[in-house]
Nucleic acid binder design. Structure first.
Lengths: 256, 256
DNA sequence: TTTTTAAGTGTGTAATTGACACTAAGTGTT
DNA sequence: AACACTTAGTGTCAATTACACACTTAAAAA
């Protein structure tokens, strides 16, 4: 096995942080500002929150740290989904400019391990931290051109989310503790980008045993108040449910 | 964002190479020999084939290179499944000894991006290459303690394989071009570790449209000769099948 | 000719899916 | 007080899919 001196790409983690509000899926993006020597105006652009992995932490810890520094939250659903490592990742002028300011060796190649996080966006209190002065929730349909290969990473995350949601009960992570059946259905419809039948959806969810009805109902809504439900976090995490079957309309399963 | 001088783990790829022969799933492992200064006998142990990622290649290319150097094959099913990056990965004395001999900086931390490959093991002609003088196919039930965290990686790959096989028609990659229905069923039974009903399996496979019957049959077997089938590689890869439904007995689907 | 071995084939029952429309329970308005 | 408005909540039937199950067939070997 041969070793050349240049065999040392850096390793970073990037977090694709999903939230759900106003009936849309959103990404939490940070704004980076780059001094523009030509126009004397600063350029700025959006990027995924991320950081280099430190010597004393593993990948999951690095991702959790990034998430915590940005949102103040820990114990969040956070799952690695893919590593990205094209040598040509850094081609945009803005990216180079930003790296000049922040990295020891701006030309070093970086491999990034991408994570997706699912957050109840109400819980997020953006902290003006070390990453960025500004962070915003942007609807996934309105995500602009991002730095580096972050558009690829975001799209990969969305695809991974769509797949995971069909295999594991994780969508709940995007909702508050208590939610109505309609909240849940709207969330699934948003993620899967298709309409679901109300009665079939309720039946499926209730039969699956992943949620429990609370006695409590909505108050102060100008229509029939909806019942609240909670996700059975313990049951699911301990495998106490056995396998769950929540097949939706328009199946594309192969095996199971 | 702060930058410390030690923020530069190396990046490697490791390949978990699956094969299927004599009704067992096997892994292709390489044997490493480490000079043992105490006993004056050389120690040896098995490991996953892998290598550091080079400056001019992306991760997929690095994995394909490792596979090709070891087996001489390219165009093989090869899919990234997880990155592993614990700072404590290298704790075993043998690993350290081996690294001493082969790496510039034996103490540097290495992040590895793990791939799984599915091979028709008949095609493999082990090349006495740069990695190892010896490589062997070991049944997954007989994989010994491997170097580094390669046991974790192998187990992760097996889990990933079990999941993928239920979502995509990829098991075929482990069989020769032509195979019988029984070959295919045995393969699925081996991967899923459960028995499947013969009639239901045939019906499912044939209805799915992923395989085509050949006119040809077995010759020289001392029982009713089985028909040969081929996998419809083109159809599946071009999405020409639309979605496929090959749900097996004992479902654990959630959504679809 | 008989034995041995694995291939190949069909049906009935149970469970699940999916399509479909009305009533119920609140708030706000007149 | 009556009515309008809005969203919650409920049941059935038909079609599909899953699953369990046992005998016949084709070849080689004895």
């Amino acid at each position: 096995m041969s070793v050349s001196p240049s065999l040392n790409p850096h390793v970073s983690v990037d977090c694709v942080i999903f939230g759900f509000s106003k009936e849309t899926l959103r990404l939490l993006l940070i704004k980076r500002t780059v001094p523009n020597s030509l126009t004397e105006l600063d350029d700025s652009y959006y990027a995924l929150p991320g950081d280099l992995v430190r010597d004393n932490e593993n990948l999951d810890e690095a991702a959790a740290r990034v998430l915590k520094e940005l949102t103040g939250l820990s114990g969040i659903f956070l799952q690695q989904f893919q590593a990205f490592g094209d040598p040509m990742r850094i081609t945009k002028a803005k990216d180079r400019a930003w790296l000049q300011g922040v990295r020891q060796d701006p030309d070093a190649r970086v491999i990034t391990v991408a994570y997706m996080a699912l957050i109840d966006s109400n819980k997020v209190q953006i902290e003006p931290g070390s990453f960025s002065k500004e962070a915003v929730w942007l609807p996934i349909s309105e995500v602009p051109e991002l730095g580096f290969d972050h558009n690829d990473i975001s799209e990969g995350a969305l695809m991974a989310l769509r797949e995971k949601v069909q295999i594991q009960p994780i969508a709940f992570e995007l909702l508050p503790e208590k939610f109505t059946m309609s909240d849940l259905q709207t969330l699934y419809e948003t993620i899967l980008e298709r309409d679901l039948d109300k009665r079939n959806f309720r039946r499926k969810m209730l039969n699956s045993g992943v949620i429990t009805a609370l006695p409590e109902k909505q108050h102060g809504v100008s229509n029939k108040p909806a019942r609240y439900y909670v996700f059975n976090r313990n049951l699911v995490e301990n495998g106490g449910l056995g396998f769950v079957n929540l097949k939706m309309e328009g199946s594309f399963t192969m095996f199971s």
